[in-house]
Design a protein around this nucleic acid. Structure first.
Lengths: 190, 190
DNA sequence: ATGACCATGTAATCCGTTACATGATTCG
DNA sequence: CGAATCATGTAACGGATTACATGGTCAT
């Protein structure tokens, strides 16, 4: 299961389930989503597998915190996952299906409305990543190739995300332009 | 559930579960995957919901075929889905997590090996889509904006896929270049 | 006091995969 | 004779979401 491996990677430093949720909302949010109701049972399972150990500590505010630590075995599992090659799963892009089936409606205006909404959705995702990139670049103005390992790898991920999301926006723009010209043509002929 | 809506869209013409599997392997393969063991129960559920009706007909070779047809209610459900706006679900990109966690290994050569494998994986997905685009363009050499509705919408989907996949390749290339320069620098300083 | 945040969990349900089960026809 | 393709399904399991349940602290 990928989620377990991702959580192993995030547990480089000890953390509670609640801490991990925050991490999912900050960094991985852009490539992986997980709710608390999934995080807690997963941590328990990983502890049973001896990839983690946990201790409870009082919290300054609120109830006791259960803090998890990666074991040597957990680290080995993580490294094996990384050495096992890139995990590229099947995509599930419902919006592509929607776009195809708009063909059946035979109304370019609806296709156009759909594409414009899609573009807005994609644009808001891009903003977040671009500001993350700018933030990293401002912290250290040298070439990213000179940064420390962690910052460098974070940069690679953000940078790849930015490129893909920009391409999605341009793809929307092209589709919108094509559909508009189709709409104009349709009106001319009617 | 998106799968049900996608299957509604595919059932513009009557088809059996076995036929749908073939459709999934041709077009939607690039954006949605479904196995027979998921397709059959889903068709049964949709029939119970009265989105489909089925009849059995003998097959020229092999056992009886159960052919499903969309009902008026099914068509209404599909249109409501399309009118309900773009469905952009949370992404689950395990490879991005892997790339981040390579930071912990502190060895650019392993990062580089990973990125090169990733590039190969992405490249093979692009080939399929590009040949699909060329095929469509060869069938009708006018601007796609002049094609019939179905061909036009299929083109839009393929075209968007091509753009995004090309961006992924370029993103890999950039990451490989950055990591290589980092590797050279590391060797110089050692 | 009300709402936001801290903090942990369980239960029911649904979606998807893997494995199992069956049997006919056609081509080499 | 064996493999591929046609054709339909069930069962067990695992992964993910939604809803449920609890209760303390802090700021307004």
């Amino acid at each position: 299961m990928s989620l377990e491996h991702i959580m192993l990677g995030m547990l480089r430093r000890p953390a509670s389930g609640y801490d991990l949720r925050k991490q999912f909302e900050e960094g991985p949010r852009h490539f992986w989503a997980a709710r608390l109701s999934q995080i807690y049972p997963t941590l328990q399972r990983m502890e049973r597998s001896r990839w983690l150990t946990s201790t409870t500590t009082p919290s300054p505010r609120g109830p006791q915190r259960r803090v998890y630590r990666r074991t040597a075995e957990g680290t080995r599992v993580l490294r094996r996952w990384l050495a096992g090659g890139a995990e590229v799963g099947a995509e599930r892009l419902a919006w592509v299906g929607q776009l195809i089936f708009f063909g059946e409606l035979r109304d370019p205006r609806r296709t156009l409305r759909f594409l414009r909404e899609l573009r807005r959705t994609f644009a808001s995702g891009l903003d977040l990543l671009e500001s993350a990139e700018h933030h990293l670049r401002r912290v250290d103005r040298r070439s990213p190739a000179r940064w420390d390992h962690d910052a460098f790898h974070e940069f690679l991920c953000i940078r790849m995300g930015v490129r893909v999301r920009r391409a999605r926006l341009r793809a929307c723009d092209e589709a919108i332009a094509l559909t508009s010209s189709r709409l104009r043509r349709g009106r001319d002929e009617t």
